[in-house]
């Protein structure tokens, strides 16, 4: 039987990928970020994670606004790395598990009434890739099978925070009804505070980021009725991505055991990491 063994909330800032690819892990600018992921990666390895469901958003790597799905889930054995216009990163293609994806699709659509777009081909975007090598080994190949789950957080109207939370609850039940003994980490990605357009470009909000990190652990339901405008006012317009952490949190028990947390606020984005598991 499938089991969710870990919940991870993480930023997916693209410059993390640039730093990783150019070996800047130990520089003063990047050490506070990369050091934060070392215990997380170790712990995930100890938990014996076999599969990861990654809630993320594409940033114009594969999806375009001519047709824009609210929820698009991968169902393939392999997902190539996309060219986001700066060339293709030197990482192995992300490996999937078609059978597991279709099990989730059937459960989510038929039992839980989430109307998904199913993608048999999907190019991987920094929304998933930026934190991925910091959490899982990829040499010679990725140590986990991945279910990429893309959420529209770009083109309004967006799904509500409560919907994303319910998606997480449905994910948990769907994982648990899988007959094979998969050990699943669920990742909510994005944020924390950042605004990338307008004269408010560069807006960050450390106090809100830290409050969010507390509330996602201890009182996630208090976040479910926050309107999109308030997420954007507090964290910046693009920080509405933070809602995707609610799917991760919704897939865990009401009380959680806190494994690890990191926060770093360097240039344009609050970079957060939280690692949780079900309360014993």
């Amino acid at each position: 039987m499938g089991k969710i063994v870990a919940g991870v909330g993480t930023s997916h800032v693209p410059s993390i990928g640039v730093a990783y690819d150019t070996n800047q892990q130990l520089t003063p600018e990047w050490k506070p970020l990369f050091d934060g992921y070392i215990p997380a990666k170790e712990w995930l390895k100890e938990k014996g994670v076999t599969h990861a469901i990654v809630i993320y958003n594409d940033h114009g790597t594969d999806f375009f606004f001519d047709k824009y799905p609210t929820f698009a889930m991968g169902a393939a054995d392999e997902y190539p790395i996309g060219d986001e216009s700066f060339g293709v990163r030197d990482l192995p293609s992300v490996k999937g598990d078609t059978d597991f994806s279709f099990h989730l699709a059937n459960e989510l659509v038929l039992k839980h009434e989430f109307d998904l777009t199913i993608c048999q081909e999907m190019l991987m975007d920094h929304g998933l890739l930026a934190p991925y090598p910091l959490l899982f080994d990829h040499e010679p190949d990725w140590s986990v099978k991945t279910v990429p789950f893309n959420v529209n957080v770009l083109q309004h109207p967006l799904p509500t925070p409560r919907r994303l939370w319910k998606l997480g609850q449905a994910m948990r039940q769907s994982v648990e009804s899988y007959p094979e003994d998969v050990r699943v980490a669920i990742l909510g990605t994005g944020g924390l505070s950042h605004q990338l357009h307008g004269t408010r470009f560069g807006h960050m909000n450390e106090a809100w980021d830290k409050e969010f990190l507390d509330r996602i652990e201890d009182d996630p339901e208090s976040l479910l009725d926050i309107p999109h405008d308030v997420w954007m006012e507090r964290g910046g317009a693009e920080a509405v991505e933070m809602m995707m952490w609610l799917t991760m949190r919704g897939a865990l028990t009401p009380e959680v055991t806190k494994i690890h947390r990191n926060y770093y606020l360097p240039m344009l984005t609050g970079m957060g990491l939280t690692v949780l598991e079900d309360a014993a």
Partner: peptide
Amino acid sequence: HIPGTHVFTGQRS
């Protein structure tokens, strides 16, 4: 209403 912000709506898209 958020100063310096132009929310990316369907209409803008």
